[in-house]
Amino acid sequence: MSIAEPTVAMPVASEEANDRRDRLRQVFRSATFLTGLAVVLFWVFCAIFGSVIVPYDPYADDLMNALMPPSAEHWFGTDQLGRDVFSRVIVGARDILTIAPLATLISTVVGTALGLVMGYFRGFIDEGISRIVDALLALPTVIVALLALVALGPSSTTVVFVIGFTFAPIIARTVRASVLAERELDYVFAAQLRRENAFHIMFVEILPNVLPPIMVEATVRLGYAIFAVASLSFIGFGIQPPSPDWGLSISANYGLIGAGYWWTVLFDGSAIATLVVAVNLMADGIQGALDE
Protein backbone atom coordinates (compact mmCIF):
# COMPACT_ATOMS: atom_id res chain seq x y z
CA MET A 1 0.00 0.00 0.00
CA SER A 2 1.22 3.45 -0.78
CA ILE A 3 2.20 5.42 2.24
CA ALA A 4 2.49 8.82 0.68
CA GLU A 5 0.46 9.97 -2.27
CA PRO A 6 1.94 12.14 -4.94
CA THR A 7 -0.09 15.28 -5.12
CA VAL A 8 0.34 18.98 -5.48
CA ALA A 9 2.68 20.55 -3.03
CA MET A 10 0.87 23.06 -0.87
CA PRO A 11 2.55 26.29 -0.07
CA VAL A 12 4.12 27.00 3.24
CA ALA A 13 1.63 29.14 5.13
CA SER A 14 4.01 31.97 5.13
CA GLU A 15 4.40 34.47 7.84
CA GLU A 16 5.85 36.60 5.08
CA ALA A 17 2.31 37.10 3.77
CA ASN A 18 1.92 40.03 6.10
CA ASP A 19 5.42 41.17 5.38
CA ARG A 20 4.54 44.55 3.98
CA ARG A 21 2.08 45.35 6.68
CA ASP A 22 4.54 44.20 9.30
CA ARG A 23 7.26 46.41 7.91
CA LEU A 24 5.06 49.47 7.79
CA ARG A 25 4.04 48.82 11.35
CA GLN A 26 7.67 48.56 12.28
CA VAL A 27 8.50 51.86 10.70
CA PHE A 28 5.73 53.56 12.58
CA ARG A 29 6.73 51.97 15.83
CA SER A 30 10.28 53.20 15.57
CA ALA A 31 10.86 56.01 18.04
CA THR A 32 13.35 57.73 15.82
CA PHE A 33 11.03 57.75 12.87
CA LEU A 34 8.12 59.09 14.88
CA THR A 35 10.15 61.85 16.47
CA GLY A 36 11.45 62.88 13.10
CA LEU A 37 8.01 62.75 11.58
CA ALA A 38 6.53 64.86 14.34
CA VAL A 39 9.09 67.62 13.90
CA VAL A 40 8.81 67.59 10.14
CA LEU A 41 5.04 67.77 10.32
CA PHE A 42 5.33 70.68 12.69
CA TRP A 43 7.44 72.63 10.26
CA VAL A 44 5.22 71.70 7.35
CA PHE A 45 2.34 73.08 9.32
CA CYS A 46 4.29 76.26 9.91
CA ALA A 47 5.13 76.50 6.26
CA ILE A 48 1.51 76.22 5.20
CA PHE A 49 -0.30 78.10 7.94
CA GLY A 50 2.57 80.17 9.28
CA SER A 51 1.45 83.51 7.90
CA VAL A 52 -1.95 83.02 9.44
CA ILE A 53 -0.96 82.10 12.96
CA VAL A 54 1.99 84.38 13.70
CA PRO A 55 1.48 87.35 16.03
CA TYR A 56 3.38 89.88 13.94
CA ASP A 57 3.91 90.57 10.27
CA PRO A 58 7.31 89.07 9.52
CA TYR A 59 8.08 91.80 7.02
CA ALA A 60 7.02 94.75 9.09
CA ASP A 61 9.84 97.03 10.19
CA ASP A 62 9.73 98.60 13.58
CA LEU A 63 13.00 100.40 14.00
CA MET A 64 12.05 101.74 17.35
CA ASN A 65 12.11 98.25 18.78
CA ALA A 66 15.17 96.94 17.01
CA LEU A 67 17.40 94.38 18.65
CA MET A 68 15.24 93.77 21.70
CA PRO A 69 16.06 90.60 23.60
CA PRO A 70 13.38 87.91 24.05
CA SER A 71 10.48 89.11 26.15
CA ALA A 72 6.82 88.52 26.73
CA GLU A 73 5.82 90.59 23.70
CA HIS A 74 8.51 89.25 21.43
CA TRP A 75 9.16 85.68 22.41
CA PHE A 76 12.28 85.46 20.30
CA GLY A 77 13.18 89.11 20.42
CA THR A 78 13.57 91.44 17.44
CA ASP A 79 16.19 91.79 14.72
CA GLN A 80 18.08 94.78 13.33
CA LEU A 81 14.99 96.17 11.65
CA GLY A 82 12.74 95.54 14.62
CA ARG A 83 11.00 92.62 13.01
CA ASP A 84 9.68 89.94 15.34
CA VAL A 85 12.07 87.02 15.21
CA PHE A 86 9.47 84.46 16.27
CA SER A 87 7.19 85.31 13.37
CA ARG A 88 10.09 85.24 10.96
CA VAL A 89 11.25 81.87 12.19
CA ILE A 90 7.80 80.34 11.78
CA VAL A 91 7.20 81.79 8.32
CA GLY A 92 10.78 81.09 7.31
CA ALA A 93 9.90 77.44 6.95
CA ARG A 94 7.90 78.13 3.84
CA ASP A 95 10.53 78.82 1.23
CA ILE A 96 12.93 76.14 2.24
CA LEU A 97 10.18 73.55 2.48
CA THR A 98 9.08 74.40 -1.02
CA ILE A 99 12.46 74.49 -2.67
CA ALA A 100 14.16 71.52 -1.03
CA PRO A 101 11.44 68.92 -1.66
CA LEU A 102 11.07 70.09 -5.25
CA ALA A 103 14.78 69.83 -5.80
CA THR A 104 14.76 66.39 -4.23
CA LEU A 105 11.94 65.31 -6.50
CA ILE A 106 13.81 66.44 -9.58
CA SER A 107 17.00 64.76 -8.46
CA THR A 108 15.20 61.52 -7.64
CA VAL A 109 13.40 61.32 -10.96
CA VAL A 110 16.39 62.28 -13.05
CA GLY A 111 18.81 60.25 -10.94
CA THR A 112 16.65 57.15 -11.03
CA ALA A 113 16.24 57.30 -14.79
CA LEU A 114 19.97 57.84 -15.18
CA GLY A 115 20.86 55.04 -12.79
CA LEU A 116 18.52 52.63 -14.53
CA VAL A 117 20.00 53.37 -17.91
CA MET A 118 23.55 53.13 -16.68
CA GLY A 119 22.98 49.94 -14.73
CA TYR A 120 20.99 48.17 -17.41
CA PHE A 121 22.96 48.96 -20.50
CA ARG A 122 26.42 48.96 -19.01
CA GLY A 123 29.13 49.13 -21.65
CA PHE A 124 29.80 52.42 -23.36
CA ILE A 125 26.76 54.20 -22.08
CA ASP A 126 27.57 53.34 -18.52
CA GLU A 127 31.24 54.16 -18.87
CA GLY A 128 30.58 57.46 -20.57
CA ILE A 129 27.97 58.70 -18.15
CA SER A 130 29.97 57.37 -15.23
CA ARG A 131 32.92 59.50 -16.18
CA ILE A 132 30.77 62.60 -16.30
CA VAL A 133 29.15 61.68 -13.02
CA ASP A 134 32.55 61.12 -11.47
CA ALA A 135 33.67 64.51 -12.66
CA LEU A 136 30.61 66.17 -11.18
CA LEU A 137 31.01 64.32 -7.93
CA ALA A 138 34.61 65.39 -7.71
CA LEU A 139 33.34 68.69 -6.43
CA PRO A 140 31.53 69.32 -3.21
CA THR A 141 27.88 70.06 -3.92
CA VAL A 142 28.06 73.57 -2.61
CA ILE A 143 30.80 74.49 -5.01
CA VAL A 144 29.06 73.03 -8.03
CA ALA A 145 25.91 74.84 -7.06
CA LEU A 146 27.87 78.00 -6.51
CA LEU A 147 29.42 77.82 -9.94
CA ALA A 148 26.08 77.31 -11.59
CA LEU A 149 24.37 80.01 -9.59
CA VAL A 150 27.05 82.56 -10.29
CA ALA A 151 26.63 81.87 -13.94
CA LEU A 152 22.85 81.83 -14.01
CA GLY A 153 22.11 84.36 -11.32
CA PRO A 154 20.64 83.24 -8.04
CA SER A 155 16.90 82.93 -7.65
CA SER A 156 14.66 80.42 -5.99
CA THR A 157 13.78 78.71 -9.25
CA THR A 158 17.39 78.45 -10.29
CA VAL A 159 18.25 76.97 -6.92
CA VAL A 160 15.63 74.26 -7.35
CA PHE A 161 17.03 73.16 -10.66
CA VAL A 162 20.66 73.54 -9.75
CA ILE A 163 20.34 71.43 -6.64
CA GLY A 164 18.08 69.01 -8.45
CA PHE A 165 20.66 68.39 -11.13
CA THR A 166 23.59 68.42 -8.75
CA PHE A 167 22.05 65.72 -6.58
CA ALA A 168 20.85 63.61 -9.48
CA PRO A 169 24.28 61.98 -10.00
CA ILE A 170 24.41 60.97 -6.35
CA ILE A 171 21.11 59.20 -6.61
CA ALA A 172 22.10 57.80 -9.97
CA ARG A 173 25.10 56.19 -8.37
CA THR A 174 23.04 54.42 -5.72
CA VAL A 175 20.42 53.34 -8.23
CA ARG A 176 23.06 52.10 -10.62
CA ALA A 177 24.60 49.89 -7.94
CA SER A 178 21.23 48.34 -7.13
CA VAL A 179 20.38 47.89 -10.79
CA LEU A 180 23.69 46.19 -11.51
CA ALA A 181 22.88 43.62 -8.88
CA GLU A 182 19.27 43.13 -10.01
CA ARG A 183 20.28 42.80 -13.60
CA GLU A 184 22.06 39.54 -12.93
CA LEU A 185 18.96 37.89 -11.62
CA ASP A 186 17.29 35.38 -13.86
CA TYR A 187 13.96 37.12 -14.23
CA VAL A 188 15.70 39.75 -16.31
CA PHE A 189 16.93 37.05 -18.68
CA ALA A 190 13.45 35.60 -18.70
CA ALA A 191 12.15 38.99 -19.76
CA GLN A 192 14.72 39.21 -22.52
CA LEU A 193 13.59 35.80 -23.67
CA ARG A 194 10.14 37.29 -24.07
CA ARG A 195 11.60 39.95 -26.31
CA GLU A 196 10.64 42.71 -23.93
CA ASN A 197 12.18 45.99 -24.90
CA ALA A 198 14.70 47.75 -22.73
CA PHE A 199 12.23 50.33 -21.50
CA HIS A 200 9.91 47.64 -20.19
CA ILE A 201 12.69 45.75 -18.48
CA MET A 202 14.09 48.82 -16.79
CA PHE A 203 10.87 50.41 -15.61
CA VAL A 204 8.44 47.54 -15.22
CA GLU A 205 10.71 44.69 -14.19
CA ILE A 206 13.68 46.19 -12.41
CA LEU A 207 12.44 49.48 -10.98
CA PRO A 208 9.89 48.04 -8.51
CA ASN A 209 12.67 46.00 -6.96
CA VAL A 210 15.05 48.87 -6.47
CA LEU A 211 12.48 51.23 -5.03
CA PRO A 212 13.28 50.56 -1.37
CA PRO A 213 16.88 51.82 -1.51
CA ILE A 214 15.70 54.72 -3.65
CA MET A 215 13.23 55.73 -0.99
CA VAL A 216 15.88 55.76 1.67
CA GLU A 217 18.29 57.65 -0.51
CA ALA A 218 15.63 60.20 -1.45
CA THR A 219 14.86 60.91 2.18
CA VAL A 220 18.52 61.36 2.94
CA ARG A 221 18.83 63.62 -0.08
CA LEU A 222 15.97 65.72 1.22
CA GLY A 223 17.97 66.37 4.34
CA TYR A 224 20.97 67.36 2.29
CA ALA A 225 18.83 69.50 0.01
CA ILE A 226 17.69 71.50 3.01
CA PHE A 227 21.31 71.63 4.12
CA ALA A 228 22.40 72.92 0.73
CA VAL A 229 19.64 75.49 0.33
CA ALA A 230 20.29 76.86 3.81
CA SER A 231 24.03 77.02 3.18
CA LEU A 232 23.61 78.72 -0.16
CA SER A 233 21.21 81.23 1.33
CA PHE A 234 23.75 81.93 4.02
CA ILE A 235 26.40 82.91 1.51
CA GLY A 236 23.92 84.88 -0.52
CA PHE A 237 23.51 82.57 -3.46
CA GLY A 238 20.30 80.92 -2.48
CA ILE A 239 16.99 82.35 -1.49
CA GLN A 240 16.95 86.06 -1.92
CA PRO A 241 15.80 88.76 0.47
CA PRO A 242 13.35 89.85 1.76
CA SER A 243 12.35 86.27 2.53
CA PRO A 244 12.38 85.40 6.23
CA ASP A 245 14.33 82.27 5.28
CA TRP A 246 16.49 81.02 8.12
CA GLY A 247 19.78 80.90 6.26
CA LEU A 248 19.24 84.37 4.96
CA SER A 249 18.39 85.72 8.40
CA ILE A 250 21.50 84.23 9.88
CA SER A 251 23.54 85.70 7.10
CA ALA A 252 22.14 89.14 7.78
CA ASN A 253 22.61 89.01 11.51
CA TYR A 254 25.61 86.92 12.40
CA GLY A 255 27.95 89.85 12.44
CA LEU A 256 26.16 90.97 15.56
CA ILE A 257 26.75 87.98 17.75
CA GLY A 258 30.08 89.31 18.93
CA ALA A 259 28.13 92.19 20.41
CA GLY A 260 25.87 89.79 22.22
CA TYR A 261 22.75 89.78 20.03
CA TRP A 262 22.49 86.03 20.07
CA TRP A 263 18.73 85.72 19.57
CA THR A 264 18.95 87.05 16.04
CA VAL A 265 20.67 83.88 14.90
CA LEU A 266 20.24 81.15 17.46
CA PHE A 267 16.55 80.51 16.87
CA ASP A 268 16.95 80.40 13.11
CA GLY A 269 19.86 78.05 13.52
CA SER A 270 17.87 75.79 15.81
CA ALA A 271 15.06 75.71 13.29
CA ILE A 272 17.43 74.52 10.60
CA ALA A 273 19.04 72.00 12.91
CA THR A 274 15.77 70.51 14.10
CA LEU A 275 14.40 70.19 10.60
CA VAL A 276 17.42 68.48 9.07
CA VAL A 277 17.95 66.17 12.01
CA ALA A 278 14.27 65.24 11.91
CA VAL A 279 14.49 64.33 8.22
CA ASN A 280 17.55 62.22 8.89
CA LEU A 281 15.81 60.42 11.72
CA MET A 282 12.99 59.57 9.38
CA ALA A 283 15.47 58.24 6.85
CA ASP A 284 17.06 56.13 9.53
CA GLY A 285 13.68 54.74 10.53
CA ILE A 286 12.82 53.80 6.96
CA GLN A 287 16.17 52.20 6.41
CA GLY A 288 15.88 50.24 9.63
CA ALA A 289 12.57 48.80 8.51
CA LEU A 290 13.97 47.85 5.13
CA ASP A 291 16.98 46.17 6.61
CA GLU A 292 14.91 43.60 8.48
Partner: peptide, 22 residues
Protein backbone atom coordinates in the same frame (compact mmCIF):
# COMPACT_ATOMS: atom_id res chain seq x y z
CA UNK B 1 8.93 35.75 -32.32
CA UNK B 2 8.12 32.19 -33.31
CA UNK B 3 11.69 31.14 -32.75
CA UNK B 4 11.75 32.87 -29.41
CA UNK B 5 8.59 31.10 -28.36
CA UNK B 6 10.03 27.78 -29.34
CA UNK B 7 13.08 27.96 -27.09
CA UNK B 8 12.50 28.67 -23.42
CA UNK B 9 14.34 28.03 -20.17
CA UNK B 10 13.77 26.96 -16.60
CA UNK B 11 16.37 28.39 -14.30
CA UNK B 12 18.07 26.83 -11.33
CA UNK B 13 17.10 29.28 -8.66
CA UNK B 14 13.37 29.98 -8.45
CA UNK B 15 13.99 32.98 -6.20
CA UNK B 16 16.02 34.64 -8.88
CA UNK B 17 13.86 33.45 -11.75
CA UNK B 18 10.66 35.15 -10.69
CA UNK B 19 10.29 38.88 -10.32
CA UNK B 20 9.52 39.27 -6.64
CA UNK B 21 7.63 42.50 -7.22
CA UNK B 22 5.09 40.89 -9.54
Amino acid sequence: IDDVKALQIIFQNPDSALNRAH
